[in-house]
């Protein structure tokens, strides 16, 4: 069974994503995955499918129209969304009717939200993933953001029960964002005072998210970190993992997301894996502070997070 959906308003930016591209880092191909992978997983659970393409949307006023009955779900940022005039629950799936219009009117918490369907959006997998590499224009829908009038064709549409993610499995997304970090390879390049203010409890420096943010990275404003006099301000370019916090010569942090495999600035820290989904929800003027944890603590938090994904799967019967 196939059906189609017409994009009526793509909001600020909407694109097709999934859990990302792996295995081509040696030739510089980044993951380009959904920034909030947990929200993406929640959609997979609500829609009873794995690794399907979903939409990642920024900004209010997103709208699309259904040309047949299909189950749809929204997760990620908390939004005020309506199917025609009916308000929709956040982090839930709902049954849409032919001709009905889904409108997102307002974002009340967080920044990016995710929309998926009980069917597979027809898109070409490039190097094993549907994720859009916006900078290089491949993946997703011809490598481009969605625009008004685009038609998404759904294949393998299924009739499924609608479901709701319970509140205790929906993470907070509002500013201030307290992000746990693990020391990075060049943490030793910064003086003791800078490091203390960067990540020690009781000394927290609050940073502000600048307007210089996109899917590649997030620049923060605040008190610059100070390099030790003997420390080099750039390093020989080297592989980086998503969530790496780089400090360029001006001392202000850049949080790298999922679009670069290599970096050339001092890596003071890495956002704990369990907290990386939160990065999808940092928006201009939000407050951010960092809290240092050990790598073992990071592993433990990640295992806990994975348990929550298993809980999602069992609640929705998609395990």
């Amino acid at each position: 069974m196939t059906s189609a959906i017409t994009v009526r308003n793509p909001a600020l930016l909407s694109l097709i994503v999934d859990l990302g591209r792996t295995g081509f880092g040696a030739v510089g191909v980044p993951s380009s995955s959904a920034l909030d992978r947990y929200a993406c997983q929640a959609l997979y659970c609500l829609l009873n499918r794995a690794n399907a393409p979903v939409l990642e949307v920024m900004g209010p006023r997103f709208a699309l129209q259904f040309d047949s009955d299909v189950v749809c779900a929204i997760a990620g940022a908390r939004v005020k969304a309506f199917l025609d005039e009916t308000p929709l629950r956040p982090w839930a799936s709902f049954q849409s009717k032919k001709g009905s219009i889904l409108r997102v009117k307002e974002i009340t918490e967080g920044f990016r939200y995710y929309i998926g369907f009980a069917g597979r959006i027809k898109a070409e997998a490039v190097m094993g993933s549907y994720a859009t590499n916006l900078e290089c224009r491949f993946g997703g829908l011809n490598g481009a953001p969605l625009k008004s009038g685009d038609i998404l064709h759904l294949e393998e549409s299924q009739e499924i029960e609608t479901n709701v993610i319970p509140l205790n499995l929906i993470p907070p997304m509002n500013s201030p964002h307290i992000l746990r970090v693990i020391e990075g390879p060049e943490a030793g390049s910064f003086n003791d005072g800078s490091r203390r203010h960067f990540w020690e409890k009781g000394y927290h420096e609050l940073f502000t998210v600048s307007t210089n943010l996109n899917r590649t990275g997030i620049r923060l404003n605040g008190t610059p970190l100070v390099f030790k006099p003997e420390a080099p301000k750039s390093i020989v370019s080297e592989g980086i993992v998503p969530g790496t916090i780089q400090i360029p010569g001006d001392g202000l942090p850049i949080i790298m997301l999922n679009e670069r495999t290599i970096g050339g600035y001092a890596r003071v820290a890495v956002i704990a894996r369990a907290d990386q989904d939160r990065l999808a929800h940092l928006k201009a003027n939000d407050l951010v502070c960092f809290e240092r944890i050990t790598v073992e603590e990071g592993e433990r938090l990640w295992r806990e997070k994975q348990k929550r994904i298993v809980q999602l799967q069992s609640l929705t019967g998609s395990a």
């Binding site: 081509f24 040696a26 030739v27 510089g28 191909v29 980044p30 590499n133 900078e135 290089c136 370019s237 592989g239 670069r260 495999t261 290599i262």
Partner: peptide, 8 residues
């Protein structure tokens, strides 16, 4: 090395 963008 190859990176920065794919194939660079």
């Amino acid at each position: 090395t190859v990176g920065f963008t794919p194939g660079f």
